[in-house]
């Protein structure tokens, strides 16, 4: 399988009153055709910002200081705004976290669903309408003809998220970025939406970048997992390897903090402490202040990435286990 999206050494900075803050630091990962990659991490670790940077939709005060985002070999960062606009919704699409606010309240579902078709495919209003009904059927909404005439406030959260997915997939994009698509939904609806994304992915051969903080979502959807902490990748690998054999203490913490329904009643594991402030200058490993295994070297030097059969970990604990050949300079 070929890489459809490659992110190389992406650095994102934010201009604030206190100066420039680094939100994402040397982010590199790739997505293969038809693959689902889950980006996991707690709130504020830079997941959503990375997703927005792929779309070219960083907020006004954010900018990409360094790095490349290659889509089918073309660097998206080198494209002119108008060329980038033609990519969005056409080749690369996004589904947002909050379906309640991601639809324009003053227009009907039909109007909004016709937008991408009319912009990218040059459909007439009538053609777009027919295609819209077909899309709504595809995402499993009942009575699609009537839905086209309804306003967002007349639909439930799950139905709106289905509409958002229909809009995002209208032009059969190669990549779908889903930014916490189920976080704002009821648990019963969550599974339906994940199934829908999986089904659509199979049907259209779309690659999916799923951003989430929910390990349950990862287990259900991912082929590969990228674990982020404080703007950096700390672990990356196949979903099975990462779940069965987590290497980084942060990944272990994340997996331990998932509540277990079966088995005896135990205290829920939490990772002590909180994310370091973006403005803080961090010496050594970014996780050391919360790491139960922190060593002296962690406090003075940032760890490199160690690779073992495609399973990458950024932790000094791997130092002892690895042989010099495996060291990938970070």
């Amino acid at each position: 399988m070929t890489d459809i999206l490659q992110i190389e050494n992406l650095n994102i900075h934010f201009r604030t009153a206190e100066g420039s803050l680094s939100a994402v630091h040397d982010l590199s990962f790739s997505v293969k055709k038809g693959e689902t990659v889950c980006v996991v991490g707690e709130s504020g670790c830079g997941k959503s910002i990375s997703a927005l940077s792929i779309m070219g939709l960083l907020p006004e005060n954010g900018h990409i200081a360094q790095g490349k985002i290659l889509f089918e070999g073309t660097d998206l960062l080198s494209l002119k705004p108008d060329q980038m606009r033609k990519m969005r919704g056409n080749k690369i699409s996004m589904v947002f976290q909050e379906p309640m606010t991601a639809l324009n309240p003053v227009f009907t579902i039909g109007y909004q669903l016709r937008e991408p078709l009319r912009i990218h495919q040059g459909f007439s209003k009538k053609q777009a309408h027919v295609k819209g009904i077909e899309l709504l059927k595809q995402v499993g909404l009942s009575l699609p003809e009537q839905r086209m005439k309804q306003y967002p406030h007349e639909l439930s959260g799950g139905m709106r998220q289905r509409v958002m997915i229909a809009m995002a997939l209208a032009c059969h994009p190669q990549i779908l970025i889903a930014d916490e698509p189920t976080t704002a939904l009821d648990v019963t609806i969550q599974a339906q939406i994940l199934d829908l994304i999986n089904d659509m992915k199979e049907q259209l051969g779309t690659s999916v970048v799923m951003i989430t903080h929910d390990m349950g979502v990862v287990a259900e959807t991912a082929d590969r997992v990228v674990v982020m902490y404080a703007g950096e990748i700390v672990e990356e690998g196949d979903v099975e390897t990462v779940f069965n054999d987590p290497q980084h203490p942060y990944t272990k913490g994340l997996l331990a903090s998932v509540p277990k329904v079966e088995g005896e009643l135990t205290q829920l594991q939490a990772i002590p402490g909180s994310l370091p402030n973006l403005g803080e200058a961090i010496v050594g490993c970014r996780f050391q202040s919360r790491c139960p295994f922190a060593m002296d070297i962690c406090r003075s030097q940032a760890p490199p990435i160690y690779e073992e059969n495609g399973h990458q970990t950024r932790c000094w604990m791997k130092e002892g286990e690895s042989i010099a050949d495996n060291i990938v300079p970070s």
Partner: peptide, 20 residues
């Protein structure tokens, strides 16, 4: 968010400004 969503679908500035 719906403005960002519209932008993520490839709407132009003019379209977003006057239509949305």
């Amino acid at each position: 968010e719906y403005i960002t969503a519209m932008r993520s679908l490839g709407s132009s500035d003019r379209r977003i400004l006057f239509k949305h």
